[in-house]
Design a protein around this nucleic acid. Structure first.
Lengths: 195, 195
DNA sequence: GTCTATATGGCGATAGAC
DNA sequence: GTCTATCGCCATATAGAC
C-alpha cells in the first residue's frame, strides 16, 4: 500500500470500506483514512461517492464471477466438477467472506446497477447453466441445482455471526473447523443430489 | 392502519421501512410518512432512531424464530419433518421475503444487538439442533444439515434480483414458478441428504 | 398527543493555496 | 497532485404552541 499510485490505493480502500459497510453505511472520511490520504483527493479522482461506488461494484462483480467460473467449462466427469466447484468457491469465500452479501445487498438497493454492469462487461450468464446442464443423467433442473449449491456455500459466510453465536457459542475456532469440515460435507451432498 | 393506536402504527411503519432499507438507509421522515404521522411523534414514542430500530429488530427476530419453530418439536418421522420444515419456512419467506436478509445484515453491522435480544428473550437455540439430532440414522452432522437447508431456502429470496436477472431474464412470472417448483425440489433434496 | 418550527451535527462536495 | 478550510444540505433531534 505504499508505492502504488493513488488511484489504485483509493480503489482498494473504497473496496474494503464499501464491502464492510455498504453504500449507505460507508463514509468518505473512512475511505480516505483507510487509503492514508485526504478526503478531497477522493473527489479529485472520482467525482462523487456514487461514482467511486460504481467503480468498486464493477470491480468486485467482475472478480467474483471470474473466480467461480474458473475451470468449469472443461470436459470433466460430474464428480470431478463437484469437487472443483466446492473448492474454488470456498477458497474464494475464505478470501472474501463478505463479497456475496455485499453484491446481494447492493443489487437489492439498486437493481439497475447490475444491469449496467452486465451490459458494459458483456457478461453472459448462460455459462453457469451449461455447467451441469450437459452431462446430467438425473433429470435434475440445473437452475434449482445451482441455486441450491450457491445457497449452501454462501449462507454460513453471510450469516456467520448469527450461526456462530447460535450454534457455537461464539467459539471462533469451532466455527472455523465447521467451515473446514463443510467442504467434504458439501461434496458428498452434491453427489447425493445428482444420484 | 386506521383505528389502531399510534405506537403500533409507528412500529409497523418502521418495520416496513427498516426491513426494506436497513438501519443506515432508512429515514425517519419516510417512517413518519408510512405511518401517516409527523416526524416529531416518532421521537415522542421512541426517543431515538436507534431505540426505534431496536424495537423493530427485537420484534422481527422473535417473529422469525416463532415461525420456523412451529410444530417441529412434535414426534413425527423425519420424512414428515422434511415436508413440514420446507412448507413452514417457505410460507414465511413468501410472506416476508426480506426478513432473513435484514436480520443477517443488521447482525453483521452490530453483532451485540443479537446478544442483547437473545438475553432479554431468553431464547434457547438448542431447539433447532434437536430437530434432526434425534431420529437421525445417517450419522449426518445436524448443524451441517440445518445450515444447508436454511441456505438453500433463503438464498433464492435474498438474492432474488440477482438470480432472476441472470437466469430468468427478469421474468417475474417465470421466477415465481421457479420458487413454487422449488418446494417439491427441496423436499426431495432433503430426503436424499439423509439417505 | 400531535403539530410546526428550529436547533445541532455530520457528511458530501468544492474553493483555493501550495 | 495534494492539502486545509469551508460551504451547503440533509437527517436526527428538540422546543414549544395548541
Amino acid at each position: 500500500m505504499k508505492d502504488i499510485n493513488t488511484e489504485t490505493k483509493i480503489l482498494e480502500a473504497a473496496r474494503t470500506v464499501f464491502i464492510s459497510k455498504g453504500m449507505d453505511g460507508a463514509r468518505m472520511q473512512e475511505i480516505a483514512d483507510e487509503a492514508g490520504i485526504n478526503k478531497a483527493l477522493l473527489h479529485y479522482y472520482y467525482r462523487s461517492k456514487d461514482q467511486l461506488f460504481r467503480a468498486v461494484f464493477q470491480s468486485v462483480f467482475a472478480g467474483f464471477f471470474q473466480a467461480i467460473k474458473g475451470e468449469l467449462d472443461k470436459e470433466t466427469p460430474i464428480e470431478q466438477k463437484a469437487e472443483t466447484i466446492v473448492m474454488q468457491y470456498t477458497n474464494m469465500l475464505d478470501a472474501n467472506p463478505f463479497v456475496p452479501q455485499f453484491l446481494i445487498n447492493e443489487i437489492n438497493r439498486n437493481p439497475q446497477t447490475l444491469r449496467d454492469v452486465m451490459d458494459s462487461q458483456q457478461f453472459n450468464p448462460s455459462v453457469f447453466l451449461e455447467i451441469f446442464g450437459n452431462n446430467n443423467k438425473s433429470g435434475i433442473d440445473p437452475r434449482q441445482f445451482i441455486v441450491s449449491i450457491i445457497g449452501m456455500m454462501v449462507f454460513p459466510y453471510a450469516a456467520r455471526n448469527l450461526v456462530q453465536l447460535i450454534y457455537f457459542n461464539d467459539n471462533i475456532e469451532a466455527y472455523t473447523q465447521f467451515l473446514q469440515e463443510r467442504k467434504e460435507f458439501l461434496k458428498q451432498t452434491i453427489l447425493k443430489m445428482i444420484q
